[in-house]
Design a protein around this nucleic acid. Structure first.
Lengths: 328, 328
DNA sequence: TTGCATCATTGAAAGGTTTCAACTGCGGTT
DNA sequence: AACCGCAGTTGAAACCTTTCAATGATGCAA
């Protein structure tokens, strides 16, 4: 304790927390001692006394997906306003890692946890809230609505995308993406089907091309499968479950000498930065990523500070951004 | 304390830390009480006693740059092996935020800090180490070598890129990137100049197109400037300071009807995933991103645990990945 | 029966900060 | 001269866990 370097004990605390109640002379004396000794306040002791910290944490599914980093930026924006720091934890699609992080964060008594979970139905999510750490689910929805969540209406996103293609005159369209076990993919596919049915188009003219993951490589593979179809059955447009798949499809299409959008129109999903920067700028369904994060952070802060907090499920509306890949 | 729910006090601690020394009956009694009360071990108190935590932190310059997320993944790999958790903090190119995070992390007594700093020369970096928290600099080098660092030889990267273009027969080349105040950019430019001079080519045939940031938009702008040059002075190839700039340049070139690589060959830097997925797959200089992170994490762990630790500066060698954008 | 070894459990101390009531001087009032 | 108020400072308690020496209980051997 720096006290012995100066002359007092709890006065050090006053210097740190209520400098005005300390005389100039003692204050500078203490401050000098602190720099000399390389004093660093012990946050553990501090927190032990205070009972809570000034930290939020975001447990993210995949830190290398630009979509999530944008969400994180939104969280950070809101956290800053409440003078909170943000720690990002990467679960990397692993339930095990996810649970380990949740344990650690609870034990650290963080103010609140934001999470895009591997499985929104997992028991341990509810358990966290039950034990007193505010928790908000980001970009997923929980079936039993026992927690706050912030998400985007993916069914609507699917509709909007396919309606756009129908408007552009396409009557043979492929849905490219998978696996359907991912909630998002299933919702977007459902929305696509709804729009298709409502336009009165024949069901078998909406083709489903399933991929095993939402990656660029899988998009390329789908392009090859598409090219292999007989011309009269081949779709003239594709709606991809995310932009990575769409970029792969786009690349394969151009590389094989077909033109976008003349031979194949393409719609992606997420509107990541690389969508507009593609060789043919990509039409995509934009989600309000930053706002998603911002809102989630606000909810978690409310849950942490407002005794009258009630759990809320916020749903945002996606928006189509039309570019050359469908407009020609 | 769960003690009153059961019958004892420090026995709870034994249940948690040395379950074998506790009889089955008491153990299950305590465990039951713990679940009933929703008991969560207090990490602050634990740490206060122990004096240190099991956490590493990576203060990253820009969480939305795929390059850094790959580095982070490498760190995580190594951290896992040492049974450490990783918190990612995004300084977002702000010195202020960077310093705030460093303060917080020191106060939390993390095992070690990895950082890609805004300015590797900043005083407060050395100060952190002086106060006892191990710190390793990632992807930058410090002039005075007072700290561990892990970086890639950017001068060599610049040479390799330009040598490749010279090999392909180009005798009029543009270097696109900036500002030069970024150490990386300056090094790559220097390497480019060296290769150029060694090949005996006239100095003014290596044109410098300075951008104000390393973004896709700036790359597009550079493309326009390039197109505006009189044909006989116009470079037939461009070496870009990173892939984002290269992708912008690529997009603008194709959109304006010129062909890559026939009218303009392009080399990028970083080899991010989107480089190979571009409409014309991009030749790029690959850096061993994951290994960068892995090595940095190993160094910081060594500094934290090995009393004989000596500061080390590790430099990796970049590697050219040739693709269609220069090979035709 | 006594003593010993073993196993299970307990109690107290330590770790660094914050808070708060209590104390010390000191100048100013009456 | 006695008192008051006030600014500045102090000491002790509390936060929760871990560790370790000490205690209690049990069974076994002599």
């Amino acid at each position: 304790m720096a006290a012995r370097a100066g002359v007092s004990l709890g006065t050090v605390s006053n210097v740190l927390n209520r400098p005005d109640r300390v005389s100039d002379r003692t204050r500078s004396k203490v401050e000098r001692a602190m720099t000399e000794l390389g004093f660093v306040r012990n946050e553990s002791a501090r927190q032990l006394r205070a009972g809570q910290s000034r930290v939020l944490a975001y447990v993210v599914l995949d830190a290398s997906n630009p979509f999530f980093t944008d969400v994180a930026q939104g969280i950070e924006l809101a956290a800053d306003l409440s003078e909170l720091s943000l720690f990002i934890c990467n679960s990397n699609n692993s339930s095990t890692r996810e649970e380990a992080y949740l344990d650690l964060l609870q034990q650290q008594r963080v103010q609140g946890i934001l999470i895009t979970p591997v499985d929104p139905g997992a028991d341990f999510l509810n358990e966290v809230a039950r034990r007193g750490t505010p928790l908000v689910i980001v970009d997923r929805v929980q079936k039993d609505l026992a927690l706050c969540s912030v998400a985007v209406d993916d069914v609507l996103g699917g509709r909007v995308a396919v309606e756009h293609l129908i408007d552009r005159g396409h009557s043979r369209v492929a849905f490219v993406g998978g696996p359907l076990s991912i909630g998002q993919v299933e919702d977007r596919w459902r929305g696509a089907q709804q729009a298709w049915a409502e336009a009165g188009l024949p069901q078998d003219a909406l083709v489903q091309l399933t991929t095993s993951a939402l990656t660029v490589a899988e998009g390329r593979g789908a392009g090859e499968r598409l090219a292999g179809m007989p011309a009269r059955r081949r779709p003239t447009a594709a709606f991809c479950a995310n932009d990575l798949v769409a970029l792969g499809l786009l690349q394969q299409t151009i590389a094989s000498g077909r033109r976008v959008p003349d031979d194949l129109a393409i719609v992606g999903y997420d509107d990541i930065e690389f969508a507009s920067a593609a060789a043919v700028p990509l039409t995509s369904v934009r989600q309000p990523r930053q706002e998603l994060g911002r809102t989630a952070a606000e909810l978690v802060v409310d849950e942490a500070t407002n005794p009258d907090h009630t759990h809320t499920q916020v749903t945002f509306t996606p928006e189509l951004v039309a570019r050359t890949s469908t407009l020609g």
